[in-house]
Amino acid sequence: MRAGDVLPPLEIEITRTLVVAGAIASRDYQDVHHDPELARHRGSPDVFMNILTTNGLVGRYVTDHFGPSAVLRKVAIRLGAPNYPGDTMVLTGTAETVDGGTVVVKVIGDNGIGRHVTGTVTVTLPMGEVE
């Protein structure tokens, strides 16, 4: 792994089930993540994925790639276009820096309406796995 290397993309189907299951698994009962009618009342066209789920998916994307021995050190994300049911988000990643066993990956998640997430993930790998 060298700076500039690209991770294979990961497609995530944004189903209503994923949105709701992610919200509940993260103990987030904000109505905009499970109640379409109240979501509309608040100016959103539908329920949308909560930030904890996005955070988890960004982390998963990186550990899926580097394997179970990789250790997440930092995940920083910023949200943009919401993930609404029926959409697909494609996560892509690029190694920004590689320093010893520490890799910083820039992650981008785009959906049908724009850029859902930009993030930076710092992960450490056991020595010898960085190549």
Partner: peptide
């Protein structure tokens, strides 16, 4: 299950929690 994360580090007797669950 919700996130489709099958990382074996999160199961079994030596399981750790997914770090991104911190806020949860």
């Amino acid at each position: 299950e919700a996130l489709g994360d099958t990382n074996p580090a999160y199961t079994g007797p030596d399981a750790i929690a997914p770090p991104t669950m911190l806020q949860v």
